[in-house]
Amino acid sequence: MDEQKNGLNPFYEEFEVFSKKKEDGPLQYQFSLLAPNEEMAIVLAKENFFRREKAVDIWVVRRNAIRKLSQSEKESLKKLDKHYRETKGYADLNQRWRNFKEKQDNGTDEKKVEKA
């Protein structure tokens, strides 16, 4: 373990704690704790983070098993707008449908348009 390499007490391993509030809910990050191993981490997680809060499931993960983004990588998440692949890039559709509807109501004999 890298803690050991640093000469730190191996009793203190870092675990990240996740939980689910409802059966069909998403898994949520809660907090971290120090424990000597997984078994201990999971019993400690319950009372450290769910004394009042409800949980239907609890996960613990050794922190060193998690690959996180570096700061450069995080910066790269700040995307340029890609309107063409999102619904908000098509905000003009309603108006265009309405235009057709108006034309129809005004009696112009163009092709019929189904109601949107």
Binding site: L34, L44, R51
Partner: peptide, 11 residues
């Protein structure tokens, strides 16, 4: 022996 345990034991 350990802060996390202190909390669990108290429950």
């Amino acid at each position: 022996p350990h802060i996390e345990e202190d909390v669990a034991f108290s429950s």
